[in-house]
């Protein structure tokens, strides 16, 4: 297994998505194509250019922090399973 295929397998595991073996084979091919497609960007001479992290150059002004009413009841309604103030998941401890 080459490095790209190993990396792909690890990525699938990390993000916890069920992928069939045929889909994984297809993703391997596609990832290689995608990385080849990105090559012109890798060749750009970025020199001393800094990284851009935000979609704008404005300076953030922080607002005062005030306590507000909790939205727990609304969030509870949107959850598949919710009880006693907690989201319910399968037990991991006996």
């Amino acid at each position: 297994m080459d490095d790209i295929s190993k990396g792909l397998e690890k990525a699938i595991k990390v993000i916890k998505i069920k992928v069939s073996s045929s889909e994984q084979e297809q993703l391997q091919r596609e990832l290689k194509e995608f990385l080849t497609w990105l090559e012109p960007m890798l060749l750009v001479d970025t020199g001393q250019t800094e990284q851009q992290f935000f979609g704008h150059d404005a300076v953030n002004v922080l607002r005062d922090d005030h306590p507000r009413q909790s939205e727990l009841a609304e969030l509870q309604e949107a959850a598949p399973k919710f009880a006693g103030g907690f989201y319910l998941v399968p037990k991991i401890l006996e």
Binding site: G7, A11, I15, V19, L31, F34, M41, T46, Q52, F53
Partner: peptide, 21 residues
């Protein structure tokens, strides 16, 4: 999946940092 791959060790600098520049 591809996004996670690009963020992984070894790929972060090569792809993500370069893309931000």
């Amino acid at each position: 999946i591809f996004g996670t791959y690009l963020l992984s060790k070894g790929n972060y600098d090569q792809y993500y940092r370069q893309a931000l520049k």
